[in-house]
């Protein structure tokens, strides 16, 4: 519990249904919809593989609950909640393209 004190723990956000990456639980999958971010940031994420239409998985959480690690195809990327809140996802459906 001391770790929670040192690193701080994010309160669980039970908001459902999920529409942003931040709302997904660890292990859940979704299809990336759109990135509501400034063009350079969105561009950078897309270069890393966060392209709308691809499937994203919440791979892991850090010990403090934030940031979390997301997986798109072969790439795992850590980002904070303040960013993943602005990445919209669709819960149903299959990847539009990709493997």
């Amino acid at each position: 519990m001391i770790f929670n004190f040192i690193f701080g723990r994010h309160k669980k956000q039970p908001k459902r249904p999920a529409s942003a990456l931040a709302d997904l639980r660890v292990g859940e999958k979704a299809i990336l919809a759109d990135l509501e971010l400034s063009p350079p940031v969105a561009e950078h994420l897309m270069n890393l593989g966060f392209v709308p239409g691809l499937e994203v998985t919440v791979a892991r959480s850090s010990p403090g609950g934030d940031p979390r690690v997301y997986r798109v195809e072969g790439t795992e990327v850590a980002m904070r909640r303040d960013l993943s809140r602005h990445i919209h996802v669709e819960l149903a459906g299959a990847p539009v393209f990709g493997d």
């Binding site: 950078h44 790439t75 795992e76 980002m79 904070r80 960013l83």
Partner: peptide, 10 residues
């Protein structure tokens, strides 16, 4: 650095 949030490839 507003346009450079923490994004880190693992």
């Amino acid at each position: 650095s507003k346009d450079a949030p923490f994004i880190l490839e693992m």
